[in-house]
């Protein structure tokens, strides 16, 4: 299997402050990778570098390479629009747009110029089903997405990303603003998606990482301490820092 996404010697600086200190990680197609680590370990920074969301922050310097299907995504000829369609992102706070549920999910396609109503209907339905929220919203697709609960909003946001059929889905603590029931619904949604999509999620919830992920990368102080199969990381970590963290001795 070839690597879908890989980073080599990735450094990120905010002004003088080095947030990421040379990250080498590879992601194969499919499965869920969890990025764990204490607050301030720069795992979110890493995630947001993968679809160039960090470009927006003033004073940020990024060195090293990130290759998506062997293409350097920081190369000048990279089309950001295409890149972000291939590498979608779900945020910590559910952020549906102030439109109807239907328009939220169809938004990416509509802006890309898709006008065929039947095709749009079909994509909206498939995406909402994949995101496991179809049954709850199918009868009020044309009501505002802001009227949904936080958990439903988050799943609509996942559907919105799925609608543009990305290769990779990045999730930045997708359940930390949600109640336990909504969180577990999101988790089972992700488990269903793991066969068709490559999922990379940042989480503060160690149980969540152990429940859903295939691989886990442990970040600390801007470095990857250890990356391995999730089972190995949680049962038999190679590094003492990892063991200390997952057994709750710090962090």
């Amino acid at each position: 299997m070839t690597n879908l996404l890989e980073t080599h010697d990735l450094h990120v600086y905010y002004g003088q402050n080095e947030a990421l200190k040379g990250i080498d990680l590879t992601f194969e197609e499919g499965g869920i990778t969890a990025l764990i680590g204490p607050s301030g370990s720069s795992k979110s920074t890493y995630l947001r570098t993968l679809n160039r969301m960090n470009d927006l922050i003033p004073n940020v310097t990024i060195t090293g390479t990130i290759k998506f299907r062997d293409q350097d995504i920081y190369a000048p000829q990279t089309d950001l629009v295409t890149l972000r369609k291939e590498i979608g992102m779900v945020f910590q706070q559910p952020n549906p747009f102030p439109f109807s549920i239907y328009d939220n999910v169809a938004f990416g396609l509509k802006l890309a110029g898709e006008k065929n109503r039947e095709y749009l209907d079909q994509v909206v339905e498939t995406s909402l089903k994949q995101a496991a929220v179809w049954d709850e919203v199918k009868d009020h697709l044309h009501e505002s997405a802001l009227s949904l609960s936080g958990g439903q909003q988050q799943r609509v946001c996942i559907a919105r990303v799925l609608a543009v059929s990305p290769q990779i889905i990045l999730l930045d603590e997708p359940t930390s603003a949600l109640d336990p029931i909504s969180s577990s619904q999101i988790e089972s949604t992700l488990l269903k998606l793991r066969t068709d999509y490559t999922i990379i999620t940042v989480t503060h919830n160690l149980q969540q990482a152990s429940r859903i992920s295939d691989r886990t990368a442990f970040f600390m102080n801007g470095e990857v301490i250890e990356v391995d199969d999730t089972k190995k990381i949680f049962m038999n970590p190679a590094r003492k820092e990892t063991e200390d963290y997952i057994s709750g001795r710090f962090g």
């Binding site: 927006l56 972000r84 369609k85 992102m89 945020f91 952020n95 802006l111 990303v161």
Partner: peptide
């Protein structure tokens, strides 16, 4: 309008202008 809306637009592959025009101004 919260910044999450801007990030949401950009993360969907919209340009900054499209985000402003189609998401921020309507919101």
């Amino acid at each position: 309008v919260p910044d999450e809306q801007r990030e949401g637009g950009l993360a969907l592959g919209l340009s900054k202008w499209e985000t402003v025009l189609h998401i921020i101004v309507p919101a």
